[in-house]
């Protein structure tokens, strides 16, 4: 085992099926900095995963159980050699106070298949906004580079701010549960805007039919305004009982239909191009923010004589003059 070794060696080992090497690669991706950059560089030219599925939803609706079921079903065993076909990245929140995290998504995925069939990685979001860990895009690239075909990204269940998922996934499944709330809640939470599929989990409980009806009504109301003229995909509303596995195969079939639609209408490539631009933009902002912070910290006492706006403009001029 090449301990913390060169990315090429680790990529080769992970491609050959080493869980340890793949686990280490994702740690490098998560760590950021020069080693993550070197890893990203080593992956240029390697293919990404064929399909990236996002699962979002409020805490407690059953996302992890659903994710475990979908992943085990999609994997259908494991290849004789090489990396598993399916991987899961399960994101949980970090404490804003201590930076620590309890990553508990794996508990719900146990017993839903052979643990060797699916590569599951828990990820703390480490303070990133939007419900996704900042390292998710590069971790997804790692998984694709070593031969994983389908990556399922389960996001921290924060409801109203987890929209960052649309910048990572090809297909977004929004999970709700029976008794979760009325149509206004669904509208407020922004789930409808990002969802390619809607699923009401815990459908054996009272209120599931109401939730489905409310969602359909919201979709009806949105059709007139939100959807563009070339929009031909209406998010289907499905029901599941993830703990029992009921409806999971149907959900996966519907998700597969979404992927086929993305490909047939040329949207898959477009979405991925948009995502790459988004990631480049976000990184550019990070770099600029760092430079701005440094210059602001170095401001002399003369800054007190200027208005904040004037001083800020001076900082921007300095940053512009300094770079290539």
């Amino acid at each position: 085992m090449s301990e913390g070794g060169a990315p090429d060696a680790l990529l080769a080992e992970a491609t050959a099926g080493s869980r340890r090497a793949l686990g280490r690669l994702i740690t490098i991706a998560e760590s950021g900095g020069p080693s993550a950059d070197a890893l990203d560089r080593a992956m240029v030219g390697r293919p990404g995963p064929g399909w990236i599925v996002g699962i979002v939803g409020a805490p407690g609706v059953g996302k992890s159980t659903l994710t475990g079921r979908l992943a085990a079903g999609a994997a259908g065993g494991r290849p004789a050699e090489g990396a598993p076909r399916v991987a899961v990245i399960a994101v949980d929140p970090s404490s804003p106070l201590t930076g620590g995290a309890i990553l508990g998504d794996r508990i719900r995925m146990q017993g839903l298949g052979d643990p060797r069939d699916v590569f599951v990685r828990s990820m703390a979001h480490r303070g990133a906004a939007g419900g996704l860990a900042g390292a998710v895009p590069i971790a997804v690239r790692v998984l694709g580079a070593v031969g994983v075909e389908v990556v399922i990204v389960e996001t921290v269940g924060v409801g109203q701010i987890e929209l960052e998922i649309v910048h990572v996934a090809d297909t977004v499944i929004a999970a709700l549960s029976a008794g979760w709330g009325d149509a206004i809640q669904a509208s407020k939470a922004g789930l409808l805007e990002v969802a390619d599929l809607l699923v009401v989990n815990k459908a054996d409980r009272h209120g599931a039919a109401d939730a489905v009806r409310d969602l359909e009504q919201m979709l009806d109301a949105g059709t007139a305004t939100a959807l563009g003229p070339d929009e031909t995909w209406r998010p289907p509303v499905l029901t599941t009982v993830a703990t029992a596995g009921t409806g999971v195969a149907e959900l996966w079939t519907a998700a597969t239909a979404h992927r086929a639609w993305l490909i047939a209408t040329d949207r898959l490539a477009r979405r991925r191009d948009d995502r790459r631009r988004h990631e480049i933009g976000r990184r550019a902002i990070d770099i600029l923010a760092h430079e701005v912070d440094q210059r602001v910290a170095a401001l002399g006492p003369t800054a007190a004589a200027a208005t904040p706006e004037e001083a800020a403009r001076r900082v921007v001029r300095q940053v512009r003059a300094g770079g290539d």
Binding site: R20, G104, R121, S122
Partner: peptide, 21 residues
Amino acid sequence: EVVYLGLRQTTESVVIAAEQE
């Protein structure tokens, strides 16, 4: 960062999770 596996694990399931995580 605590990866919580909880109850009824085997030595094998712990090793697999330790590798992946």
